[in-house]
Amino acid sequence: MYKKEISLTINNESYVREVAVNRTLLEFLREDLGLTGAKEGCNEGECGACTVLVDGKPVNSCLMLAVEADGSTILTIEGLADGDKLHPLQQAFIDEGAVQCGFCTPGMIMTGKAIIDEYGNPSEQEIRKLMEGNLCRCTGYTRVIKTVKKTADSMVENSDKK
């Protein structure tokens, strides 16, 4: 398969790699770089388990080719915490019991973070709509949605205080 060199920033580190032009971003992250936090649930853009942020936007990495990500800045679940300090959304997923089997969780959290970053403090209904592409078979969603909402509330509150 024809290969191409790409360079990109992932979780604040820069990478230059040769990659087959048909390799998906998900395969590239998981198999070439060993970043296995993003999961494969369907490989057809339906489950959201593979969600990562490309230039801040949530993307189903199973549908994007690695070569398309050339030059971009990528954030995966592994890069979300600041050292030992978890991102508020990660902490909230723990505290609110929004994790069960956890297979959907990395995708859920990345989508949730993107929503908070972009919309600040959307309503619960808007969050539901925006997270429609992330499937979960364990939690029934409500706890996940409430966790994102609660985190958005407190992040807005904290930034108001500053």
Binding site: G37, I77, Q90, V99
Partner: peptide, 13 residues
């Protein structure tokens, strides 16, 4: 709270 959540929310599991 469950014990395995921290690994699950960081992608470490």
């Amino acid at each position: 709270l469950r014990k395995d959540s921290r690994d699950k929310v960081t992608g470490a599991t």
